[in-house]
Design a protein around this nucleic acid. Structure first.
Length: 1252
RNA sequence: GCCGCGGUGGCGGAACCGGUAGACGCGUUGGACUUAAAAUCCAAUGAUAGUAAUAUCGUGGGAGUUCAAGUCUCCCCCGCGGCACCA
């Protein structure tokens, strides 16, 4: 029996004594840095999930070591953090004592799992020797302006009493039934179960933001925190993902998290209603402080509203605008907004909403129009309303959007609710592989949907000539006047139905370009869709031609969608069934032309867009506006002017707004401004081209500019807790007082969005907090370029009083925000580098008090320091840093552990970085892995790290579960690896972990399974003992010595062959991290070797033949001699003759020798391989003969080359024939002649093979 | 809603380019050894029918392509993970 305790102890001691895994980092010739995610030393001890990951990683590392690499596999402990701290609080011990204990426990356990760790280079994040450099890292960030303090809305965990980064906030599902006890549910499965109990559909599910650690719902708080500016690296972090050799899912997750979108910032100018007087009502005195949140520094000035969009091609369809409730424009326009009270009320509601339990959020879009202000769509100068709505987010883009309801689902929903105009500007378009060698014809086409109201079925066509299944469709000829007539004609021609009644048109146009097989040409089709109803069954005769092309069928309504397989008709069908919807895909622009001026078209110019109820048209010749109450389409030039309309006396305004559907000022402004707007026509362009064209147009006209937006936010690194590295910063009140703040030194800033006449006539400087850059604004345009070389002191710019801001007496929020920000930065100094580490002081009561300050704040000796700058009393920062700061650079420190005077040794890093293989959990996709990349990138920029990317290769492993469910303390099903190692030995546990399944997908631990692995280990042990005992001892069975003769190599024993096969297989598996199949291959080898010891090689071949051959080959019992015969033909030309005289002989070339195979015929295992080889040789001949079957008596092994690009020769259809054999009964169906096989069939049976 | 991954015996899981589905392990059943148990060894083990040879059905469901589909295409269902009014 294998005594694992004795054996493992012996070898692990040998590893230690001989330091065989200790790498000389400087001398290593072929460095291989094998990294695993160092564990968080929880008090419960090493989790089996850790072991799962570590063993996989270790096996790969050992494999590389065996390949001759100097494999470096370090380990450490990520001991700082709230987890351990909370645990210590819970058991009432001091965290330092707990840590000491867990450290020992963890290292003991890590020794036992038998990994090839280099124990000379461990790191612990709570060790001052380590966190000294974590603090150093903070200083580097600060120096590089990547660490800053900002007051902002942060995630606050009321249970952990600290802030959390965005990445540490996770979503949990919440049961929508409020009476449900378990409203917040961890697992989807549980959630679904509870939902079933409550009979709630899962699509009603709500989610709540909770703390990653303790599942407590997080709150939003306004706090001043330290941030690291990861956003500066967004583009590089994203770009490098393209070439990193990482698990694809993790790359995708990071990509999504960074969330890049490219688009355009467009400026909309505003129109304030002139006759609105400043409301006197006191209620409207809007106080900023009421709103406990910041007004964002959205870029805007008095009469410009900026939006960000990725679909500028839909600008013509923009019929209103929306700003977020936090948007500054609301305050800036408060005097122009006539319903300001209502707006304020809405904003307050919105504010409450975000604080309320999210489950109460009704997801219906809500909003309020900002009455009295309008925006002007720059492409057509239409006045459009502006809304405030909370579906627009303050911190993305510019906090305002241009709404295009026809092509955006959210806008569509909103527009429907508030009955806003929906203007379609993109028609669906599909280019469906038109053939380049064929002509393309442009056609107007009508598609007819005929409903049979009797049984609710729809008339469809099943095409014979193509795969189409469609509605009747026909082209419109030149002399066709009426769509309906065309539709009727087509239906009759194609299906014979004569009497159908027109109901309505469905949707608008759809375009498509495709190849029509039945006409052998491409068509660029413009589709229209009409709905008809069948009146009666009367049918006309259908022409032969139509009959041959398709068959008419009536399809049930429910089945139509799956029956129709033509893309554009599916869209039309969806419109018919579900009504209009927002088409958000790409397409072809329509209704996107502002060049339609009076002189170009007929005298009447459509302003009808604005007046749904009344068609109003403008007649240039008489300079008047006319409208037509009856909505008559063909409004003639000579029509009477609209009643009561006196254009001359009103210039270009309609006096009575009732004339214009009651709401809008009419569109004469549109006419007037049309002259000023440069022409733009996007009609007919595909989305991509349209985008390019309009962006160019916007840029030329200086109303827009390309911009890139990211979802990624800066990383909040401060935590109000004890167990972490203190942030090495000092705040000096004295310095802050004397700092040059905007108020104190008016020369320092010119960020007022108000006027700054000093800087140039009619020029403003605008400061963007978001970009931290200044922009020049002149007249109506903002130059989007930051101001180069602008020195406020030189220009002596003064910050003006709020009312200077071009006359709008609103407080200048932007300005205030800048001041606040400047305040928060001033007075802060970094702790001098020589004073590092800022040691974490001892304290007994380290409980967080929830005041928003860390526990360190209680220790006066720690807090009170001298200001490093002025020497006056100052205070230390009492927050500690996020544990992820500790772990974002540990892999660099492993390489430099012996250096006490520097964090990193450049030479070392140069030699060893990047990490060659990193295996770890997927849960760190956007936490550790993104932070580590960011920090390493910064260090690279600073010259400390030699590589921009730290991890060359990363593979994510899956989750280890037990008996199908997640392990958790509460369930009490957490596996303690110690117990199992004790019982079964580390080898068995390690192998079992790897045998569980694909590493990427995780594994399911079953206690019963590990016994099998123990058995396997025993079997190996016994086998080797046996081999040593028996005759195998002397035969050098597994050795191929240098003087082995050639014949020996050609006639290897099956053992050697099995061994080699296994080596090959296992090697490949290990390279691909397929550890489970690697082990299975080893098991197979052991099984075979065991078999072999039972049937020693002295056994005569006949023995094997009788037992094996008969079973495997059935009728080919005598295959041994048979194959010898064939093979000895050397060049075997098998010339079969068949009973049917008409059949041309099929010639199969078989070039094939004994020596090519390199094995003995007596070995039946080998024989089977010969068979395979034989078959593959046939395969070669098959290629020549196009298609072929090979049939081994009752075993059917078809081997056919698949998609041959250009076979050397093709069988002509004439040569196609079939071959029969009596010994394959189920092939008799072929011989019956019922089926004609479109290929050659060779059936290889003993009798046939003997026949030559 | 969008994106990614997945669904194969009683169980964990194999199956490279489409080519004998279920490797390997667990479990179960029968047998050997044993006073007995454990351990070990041998045999069987997808389902159904049959003493058997063998036949039919079988990779979430439904269509399709193919001589051949777990694998490719389309539609649908379910599970897991990520993102989510991201303009």
């Amino acid at each position: 029996m294998y005594n694992h305790k004795k054996i493992e102890k012996k070898w692990q001691e040998k590893w230690e004594d001989n330091k065989i895994y200790q790498v000389d980092l400087d001398k290593a010739k072929k460095p291989f840095y094998n990294l695993m995610m160092f564990p968080y030393p929880s008090a419960e001890g090493l989790h089996v999930g850790n072991m799962y990951a570590f063993v996989h990683s270790d096996v790969y590392g050992r494999f590389m070591k065996l390949q001759g690499y100097d494999m470096f596999e370090p380990i450490g402990l990520d001991g700082f953090g709230i987890h351990s701290e909370n645990y210590a609080i819970k058991i009432g011990e001091h965290i330092k004592d707990v840590s000491k204990r867990t450290e020992k426990h963890f290292y003991d356990q890590l020794h036992k799992i038998g990994n090839a760790y280099d124990w000379s280079r461990k790191v612990e994040t709570y060790n001052p020797n380590y966190y000294k450099w974590t603090q150093w890292l903070f200083l580097q960030m600060y120096k590089k302006n990547l660490a800053y303090r900002k007051k902002s809305s942060v995630n606050w965990c009321p249970s952990c009493k600290t802030v959390l980064s965005d990445e540490q906030v996770v979503k949990l599902k919440v049961c929508p039934v409020k009476s449900c006890r378990a409203r917040i549910l961890l697992k989807t499965k549980l959630f679904n179960r509870v939902n079933k109990v409550h009979k709630v559909k899962s699509n009603k599910e709500e989610e709540v933001n909770v703390c990653e650690r303790c599942d407590t719902p997080v709150e939003k708080k306004q706090m001043e925190q330290w941030f690291w500016k990861i956003t500066d690296y967004a583009e590089r972090l994203l770009k490098n993902l393209n070439w990193l050799d990482w698990s694809e899912e993790v790359k995708t997750i990071q990509k999504n998290w960074i969330g890049k979108s490219e688009g355009v910032v467009i400026q909309f100018s505003m129109n304030m209603s002139k006759d609105i007087r400043c409301p006197k009502n006191k209620k409207l005195n809007f106080e900023v402080s009421k709103f406990n949140f910041l007004f964002f520094g959205h870029r805007m000035s008095k009469d410009i509203l900026e939006v960000f969009t990725t679909r500028p091609d839909t600008l013509f369809g923009c019929t209103y605008m929306v700003v977020c409730p936090e948007h500054k424009s609301i305050i800036n326009y408060q005097l122009s907004i006539t319903n300001y009270a209502e707006v304020c009320k809405y904003i307050e509601q919105a504010k409450k909403k975000s604080e309320l339990d999210r489950t109460d959020l009704n997801k219906d879009k809500t909003g309020v129009e900002l009455k009295g202000v309008k925006a002007i769509n720059p492409v057509n100068n239409e006045e459009i309303p502006i809304f405030v709505a909370d579906y627009v987010l303050p911190d993305y883009g510019t906090g305002a959007i241009m709404a295009v309801p026809a092509h955006d689902e959210r806008d569509f929903e909103f527009a429907k609710k508030y009955r806003l105009k929906i203007k379609e500007v993109v028609a669906p378009f599909l280019r469906d592989n038109p053939r380049k060698d064929k002509e393309t014809e442009k056609r107007d086409v009508v598609t007819v949907i005929v409903k049979n109201p009797q049984n609710n079925t729809f008339l469809c066509l099943n095409w014979n000539t193509t795969e189409w299944q469609s509605f009747p469709t026909g082209g419109i000829e030149k002399d066709d006047l009426n769509l309906i007539t065309v539709a009727k004609r087509e239906v009759e021609e194609e299906t014979g139905y004569k009497n159908i009644k027109f109901i309505k048109q469905i949707g608008n146009s759809i375009y498509a370009e495709f190849y029509r097989p039945h006409k052998d040409s491409n068509v660029y089709a413009h589709f229209k869709y009409l709905l008809f109803e069948l009146e009666n069954e009367e049918r006309a005769e259908i022409s032969q031609k139509e009959k041959s092309q398709h068959k008419a069928v009536w399809v049930e309504e429910k089945k139509v969608n799956s029956f129709i397989n033509v893309w554009n008709q599916k869209i039309a069908w969806k419109k018919l069934i579900h009504g209009d919807f927002a088409y958000c895909e790409e397409g072809i622009n329509i209704n996107s032309n502002n060049t339609k001026t009076p002189e170009k078209s007929e005298a009447f110019v459509g302003s009808e867009d604005c007046y749904p109820q009344h068609k109003v048209r403008y007649c240039q010749s008489i300079n008047s506006i006319k409208y037509n109450k009856n909505n008559v389409k063909h409004f003639q030039c000579g029509a009477e002017p609209a009643e009561g309309f006196e254009p001359s006396s009103h210039g270009l305004t309609i006096p009575d707004s009732r004339h214009a559907a009651g709401t809008y000022t009419p569109n004469l402004l549109y006419q007037k401004n049309q002259d000023q707007t440069k022409p733009l026509n996007l009609n007919g362009l595909e989305t991509k081209q349209a985008k390019e064209k309009i962006i160019k147009w916007l840029e030329e006209n200086k109303i827009g500019k390309r911009e890139v937006n990211y979802k990624l936010r800066d990383w909040c690194v401060s935590r109000q807790r004890y167990w972490g590295p203190p942030i090495p910063m000092i705040y000096c009140e004295h310095c802050a007082q004397n700092a040059k703040t905007p108020e104190k030194n008016s020369e320092g800033f010119c960020e007022s969005e108000g006027c700054c006449p000093q800087y140039g006539q009619d020029c403003h400087l605008v400061y963007s907090v978001k970009h931290n850059k200044k922009f020049v604004k002149s007249s109506n345009n903002i130059s989007m370029e930051p101001v180069e070389g602008f020195e406020p002191s030189v220009h002596k710019v003064t910050i003006l009083e709020p009312h200077h801001a071009t006359g709008t007496p609103t407080p200048n929020l932007l300005y205030q925000e800048i001041q606040n920000q400047a305040k928060s930065q001033s007075g802060w100094h970094s702790a001098p580098e020589k004073d590092l580490p800022v040691e974490l002081p001892e304290m007994d009561d380290f409980l967080p008090d929830g005041t928003g300050k860390g526990p360190l704040n209680k220790i006066k000796e720690f807090v009170n320091v001298k200001c490093p700058k002025c020497g006056k009393p100052a205070k230390r920062e009492t927050d500690v840093s996020d544990p992820f700061v500790d772990s974002c650079w540990y892999f660099l420190r492993y390489l430099s552990t012996e250096f006490n005077n520097k964090a990193l040794d450049k030479e070392r890093l140069k030699k060893w970085m990047p990490v060659d293989m990193y295996i770890g959990g997927r849960e760190h996709s956007v936490l550790h892995l993104l932070y580590a990349r960011f920090v390493n990138m910064v260090l690279y920029d600073l010259g400390y790290s030699p590589e921009e990317e730290p991890f060359k290769k990363f593979r994510a492993h899956g989750l280890l579960i037990k008996d199908g469910v997640k392990m958790s303390k509460s369930k009490g099903n957490v596996i303690n690896p110690d117990e199992y190692i004790e019982k079964y030995g580390a080898d068995a546990v390690r192998m079992y972990l790897m045998f569980l399944g694909d590493m990427r997908q995780g594994g399911d631990w079953r206690d019963s399974g590990i016994k099998g692995m123990k058995r396997f280990v025993n079997r190996i042990y016994n086998l080797f003992n046996k081999i040593q005992d028996t005759r195998y001892k002397d035969t050098n069975k597994f050795k191929i010595s240098n003087n082995t003769s050639k014949s020996d190599i050609r006639h290897p024993t099956s053992d050697i062959r099995n061994l080699h096969k296994t080596i090959k297989g296992v090697t490949e598996d290990l390279e691909n991290l397929k550890f489970n199949t690697a082990i299975s291959k080893l098991m197979i080898l052991v099984n075979k070797l065991e078999q072999d010891t039972k049937f020693p090689k002295t056994a005569p071949p006949q023995f094997a033949a009788a037992n094996w051959g008969g079973a495997v080959f059935g009728n080919l019992v005598s295959c041994s001699s048979l194959f010898t015969k064939i093979i000895n033909l050397e060049i075997a030309v098998l010339n079969f003759k068949f009973s049917k005289s008409s059949v041309t002989p099929l010639i199969v070339l078989c070039k094939f020798r004994m020596s090519d195979v390199g094995c003995r015929m007596s070995d039946f295992d080998v024989l089977f391989e010969i068979l395979n080889l034989f078959v593959s040789l046939y395969l070669v001949s098959c290629i020549l003969l196009n298609k072929l079957y090979i049939l081994f008596t009752n075993r059917f092994i078809p081997l056919i080359p698949l998609s041959l690009q250009s076979p050397p020769c093709r069988m002509s259809p004439k040569n196609i024939k079939y071959i029969r054999t009596a010994s394959a009964p189920y092939f008799s169906i072929y011989s019956s002649g019922l089926i004609t096989l479109p290929f050659d069939l060779l059936i290889l049976t003993p009798s046939l093979i003997k026949s030559p």
